[in-house]
Write a protein that binds this DNA or RNA. Structure first.
Lengths: 218, 218
DNA sequence: TAGATTGTTAATCGATTAACAATC
DNA sequence: TAGATTGTTAATCGATTAACAATC
């Protein structure tokens, strides 16, 4: 596999990856409003980035614009969707049917984008047999058997911190390649596993820091 | 206000701010296990950063270690807590008592760190009078009156996207300086307001991207 | 004291921005 | 055609890392 030009095929910086969902979200909005075209300058203005950065970001994946015109919203949106892998569906499971698990499982936006939660597990035997967002809650000791008999693209962990490392090892061992973890614990996974952390407390602490920082400036 | 040395007093890079909660979390764990001392090399090993980066990060705020010894865990944890502003309590409100709002309001870790949710608002009149995590749910049209008569350090928005910009403007207008937004919308706030976004869908899309990226390498 | 590890400076690396030729 | 805007290269900026004198 040879790179066709400088950027295409090269390593994608984290910053670019972080901005892709932002582009996707904003282009979706423009498409909803039936906007036909957008320039990097407009787009940048609206989401708070420079035009150069936006063009540079897209150039990692190809040339989607037209000189003198800009980008066709529909077309660019579709390209970004493909880049993000949104043209296909994903099989998800969720482990931990507590408050956060419930909220995630009920969040319709995921399903809309093709991320379909097909099984929910919980350690509490009292929850067994209950339904959550039209999905049966199973005891966590059935997790291994499930993994052996179903395709699972992404596992969402909303279990207590103490239980999380063990669950993670189990998932990895049974070949799950995508893990979205909400527990505030550090997890070690092999290189071939993609791990995404969402640590809510970390976000709140960052907010707290910046709140205190401001006051000391000026 | 003059900077006492090169780093102390200079602008703190975003990356440093992002890592502070990670340091806090890991140092808390070490303290729980009664570990007395830690070197930047050990700490780095455990959380996946270089020793140099850790020392460099801390040096923005002062000198907390000892040559030839490392850092006293308790002392460093306390310093990081102070840096993050965790030595005081915060008055929080939450707007939007849906699934996500419920999960956030019930998350005990926030209260433990001094982030206390004191009022919850929702647009749905049917929820009025209900309690959520021992906190009364009020109709959202009482929000303005509340803001005028109470101190609010941080407002958490877990309302639907459509309602969010208006709520945000209201908060800013009534002097709230910290906003933690979960709606997938871009919000414009004045410079003096600290805005933290947690876009769950964005995290999932990043995971999706990386899942697809891997396959195309190798 | 000798060994270890800090805080900081200088060197390196990578990401963002500015500029512009290409061209729709 | 003239005007606008892309994709990309070079210049700039900032963050990470390596190295080391200071010193516990």
């Amino acid at each position: 596999m040879t790179a066709r030009n400088t950027k295409k095929g090269s390593e994608i910086p984290q910053g670019v990856i972080a901005r892709l969902p932002l582009y996707h979200r904003h282009l979706s909005e423009l498409a909803d409003r039936d906007v036909q075209r957008v320039s990097s300058a407009q787009l940048g203005q609206e989401i708070g980035l420079t035009a150069a950065q936006i063009r540079s970001d897209f150039s990692y994946f190809g040339s989607f614009g037209q000189q003198g015109y800009g980008y066709r919203v529909q077309e660019l949106l579709q390209q970004v969707s493909i880049i993000l892998g949104l043209e296909k569906d994903y099989h998800l499971i969720l482990i931990g049917a507590g408050n956060l698990g419930k909220a995630i499982a009920s969040y319709a936006n995921f399903r809309k984008r093709g991320f379909i939660i097909e099984a929910i597990f919980d350690a509490n035997p009292l929850l067994e047999g209950n339904y959550l967002a039209a999905c049966l809650i199973q005891p966590v000791d059935k997790l291994e058997a499930y993994l052996d008999s179903h395709t699972v693209d992404i596992a969402i962990i909303t279990a207590p911190s103490e239980a999380t490392p063990k669950i993670c090892r189990c998932l990895v061992h049974h070949g799950v390649r995508g893990i979205w973890n909400f527990s505030p614990v550090h997890l070690d996974v092999p290189d071939h596993v993609v791990l995404e952390h969402t640590h809510l407390t970390d976000s709140l602490l960052r907010l707290s820091f910046r709140l205190n920082q401001q006051r000391s400036d000026s």
